[in-house]
Design a binder for these strands. Sequence first.
DNA 1: CGAATTTAGGTGCATATACACATTGAGACT
DNA 2: AGTCTCAATGTGTATATGCACCTAAATTCG
Lengths: 149, 149
Amino acid sequence: MTAVPSPLRLSPAECTCFRVRSAARRVTQIYSRHLAPTGLRISQFSLLGHVIARGPLSISELSDRLATDRTTLTRNLRPLLASGVIERAAAGDKRRHELVATLAGRALFKRALPMWAAAEQEVRDAMGTKLTADLHVALDRSMEKLAPL
Amino acid sequence: MTAVPSPLRLSPAECTCFRVRSAARRVTQIYSRHLAPTGLRISQFSLLGHVIARGPLSISELSDRLATDRTTLTRNLRPLLASGVIERAAAGDKRRHELVATLAGRALFKRALPMWAAAEQEVRDAMGTKLTADLHVALDRSMEKLAPL
DNA sequence: CGAATTTAGGTGCATATACACATTGAGACT
DNA sequence: AGTCTCAATGTGTATATGCACCTAAATTCG
């Protein structure tokens, strides 16, 4: 006999991908609404936050941390480079571009922080402390398990 | 004293949005890889599946079910209409467009189903039964709590 | 040293996402 | 009927996403 009670027939209604993507859309809208006055999208906020927190980073390093495709990052950086919140510094290796936040970038992030916090709080208020914690744990563990090959 | 141990200072590292979006990207890649031979993206697979399962639907109804913006759906439908897997039937109300799956659409979905199942199984194998169940529960509850105003 | 390989990054293309705004049909009210 | 309002949908614009492919710099190896 088999050890695992195999889920012989999976139905598309049980799609993990659909669930995660739906949730991402919903949640994104809440944060977008709060961050709108700053001119930052939530992805830009995350990106900028990582660059500020983790110091100079190459695009590849950043794409690893953010679980985002490198080429996606290249394009997501464009508005931020254009508006001068992030700069590219030359590295020893001429292929690399070290990304650093400018003073304006840090100031913008500081201004945006309360609005991000309000969004985060709205989500937590709606979901409750327990569900928020459970969701975070489940998502964090999932990301570990689904780490790229 | 306050009843709730208030999280006085939320740090961007605890961003729910970032977690959900990262997970969505990772998970999406796995399904995309499996579905590639079918020519269907995972979002198209979900969309087509819903149209097949829920019979004729208007765009607005579908956008509610999929938690997707209506205008996003309009554009996501384009490739599916162009390739003839979905059709628009006239409704009594001339504003409405009833969406129905064509025979070709149903056949395509049937062919794609095993590949979707393989993707779903890959995710479940990586995450384990418990974590998969926990994640689904957390996501389903979150979607309830975060239902649009 | 010089060629092959690997590594960092960008581009072309196609889809995904959603807000603001425009359009058109249906229903209600006078 | 005429008009006013609402409901269903599409468009313009901008960002997000990632695969296939390309370029150039660094490294490895004969």
